[in-house]
Design a protein around this nucleic acid. Structure first.
Length: 473
RNA sequence: GCGGUUAUAGCUCAGUUGGUUAGAGCAUCAGCUUGUGGCGCUGAGGGUCGCCGGUUCGAGCCCGGUUAAUCGCCCCA
């Protein structure tokens, strides 16, 4: 006999958990729909050609590949059969989707001309990554994405940030939204000297919240980027400024700290990138509620290589969370001006953000937000005491459901203790006990499971009785 | 891909320098009580101590290997 088990990094969602997850998704969906977004679903499987090369080398390693059917090995040349890397393209043509943005880009390209532009869609589906599972990291997890394709206005960024704010407010979870702009980071290029130094700088900088300012400096020194340490320290000084505008001003002053070796052309490009980015950020900030908890984070880089404009990240910031609670971000996104370019359709701008459902759930659980949210059925469990009561119980349950309340008949004439235990476990708030005595007088003994009180209600009065005890059907 | 920790009942875990028949709480079932629960009492069932090998008179405990889970690194939601 084999012990049942689950693939690493995957989970079952039992009734209690799933009801809470669906409650979260309902909140998100209501926000999405209220901003005019339309739903989209795409297949779990995509052609590997669609997925590969979109997430960088690291991302390609994390793609789940699907073995071809049939005698796939015969197609592979003998020379490639002993090297798994060389063999892979011969035996796997499809993979599981890695995120929802690339499938969206594919969909937009395949359906161009038929979609209203700008195309605003939301999508809530699982994605898969062959990552090492850890706390808050799963191999199968759900993303809830909203994207606007075909519009380059900062209005879109502002709308998405506002939806972040609204959604987390409705979920009751305190968050901080950090914003940065790829243009600001690009403008550091002349100061850093080379493209490779720039990207190493990005990788090191992204770890700042984990290893601290000094840790990043150390890492830059380890990578022999002495020059970059000065840029980093300048960046941190700007980051120390309090509000959005002061940070931005400090950064603008910093970016003109240039490497003398840089040529005039690259300096000019950097200045243009900086000006455009700063203008966009100022406009974006002005479109958001003044008191909104949105901060400029000059050290925010975000990994995905396709971002070209504003980038966002959401972190939990809630005093109910344990002090040592760390899960990373629970959402993120940004502007990508050239994603569909990879599918042969250039110049379609897009911007989108993602809600990490699993981490949102884990965070809300850690903050105790589910404790005061017991999922009680608004309805009634019928408890038949003998088999002769089954017909009346079934008929009454039908009437109750017809009026919009939930009802269930316990499927046997088990002991009352057992039936009431079941009712409590399932969260029913009322139990209707129905036995020989009740049947003869055409009544039920209606027990309030929260208060413990009990009253006799006739068959005919049951529905009206429910209406007074269970408002809001 | 690389490290650390852990593995005992359905669940959460005890188990002394290696020593008779491996325990507790919760859960389940039965009875106390033809039909009154969520904090009552009594009892019962349930374990190849992850797996393979080694040391020993004797291994849940020590050693080696292996598998899995978990926490870190890389990277990311």
């Amino acid at each position: 006999m084999q012990k049942p088990s689950l693939p690493s990094g995957t989970r079952d969602f039992g009734p209690v958990v799933l009801k809470r997850r669906k409650a979260i998704m309902q909140v998100l969906e209501r926000v999405f729909v209220s901003h005019g977004f339309d739903p989209l679903e795409t297949p779990a499987l995509e052609n590997l050609k669609t997925l590969q090369g979109k997430y960088g080398d690291e991302g390609d390693q994390l793609l789940f590949r699907i073995l071809n059917s049939g005698d796939y090995l015969s197609k592979a040349p003998e020379a490639d059969r002993h090297d798994s890397k060389a063999l892979s393209p011969w035996i796997a043509d499809r993979g599981l989707r890695y995120d929802l943005t690339v499938p969206l880009a594919r969909f937009v390209v395949m359906n161009r001309g038929q979609l209203p532009m700008p195309f605003k869609r939301y999508q809530m589906q699982p994605v898969w990554r062959a990552d090492r599972p850890q706390k808050g990291r799963y191999r199968e997890f759900w993303q809830c994405d909203i994207d606007v394709v075909g519009a380059d206005s900062v209005l879109c960024e502002a709308e998405l940030v506002e939806m972040y704010l609204k959604a987390f407010q409705q979920l009751g979870l305190g968050v901080e939204i950090r914003i940065n702009h790829r243009g600001l980071l690009d403008s550091l290029m002349p100061s850093l000297g080379s493209a490779s130094a720039w990207s190493e700088f990005m990788v090191a900088m992204d770890k700042a919240d984990k290893i601290g300012q000094e840790g990043v400096s150390q890492e830059l020194r380890n990578r022999h980027l002495e020059h970059a340490v000065r840029v980093w320290e300048g960046l941190c000084a700007a980051q120390q400024e309090g509000d959005f505008e002061s940070k931005l001003k400090a950064f603008e002053a910093l970016a003109f700290f240039k490497n003398e070796d840089a040529n005039a052309q690259s300096i000019l490009q950097a200045e243009e990138a900086l000006k455009k980015a700063a203008d966009e950020l100022r406009l974006l900030r002005s479109l958001l509620p003044a008191q909104a908890s949105v901060v400029l984070d000059l050290t925010l880089a975000r990994g995905l290589s396709y971002y070209t404009g504003a980038v966002f990240e959401v972190s939990p910031k809630d005093e109910r969370l344990p002090l040592d609670f760390r899960l990373g971000s629970i959402g993120g996104g940004g502007r990508y001006d050239n994603l569909t370019g990879a599918f042969g359709l250039p110049d379609v701008p897009g911007v989108g953000v993602s809600f990490g459902l699993d981490r949102i759930y884990d965070t809300m659980e850690a903050a105790g937000l589910f404790d005061q949210m017991p999922s009680t059925w608004k309805g009634i469990l019928f408890c038949p005491m003998d088999e002769a009561s089954f017909p009346d119980a079934v008929r009454l349950a039908r009437e109750v459901r017809h009026c919009g309340y939930a009802a269930e008949v316990y499927p046997s004439a088990a002991k009352l203790k057992k039936q009431l235990d079941y009712a409590n476990q399932r969260g029913w708030c009322l139990a209707a006990i129905l036995g020989e005595n009740e049947r003869l007088s055409q009544t039920v003994a209606l027990k309030d499971l929260n208060e413990g009180s009990q009253s006799t209600v006739s068959y005919d009065d049951l529905v009206t009785h429910l209406k007074t005890h269970l408002p809001n059907g």
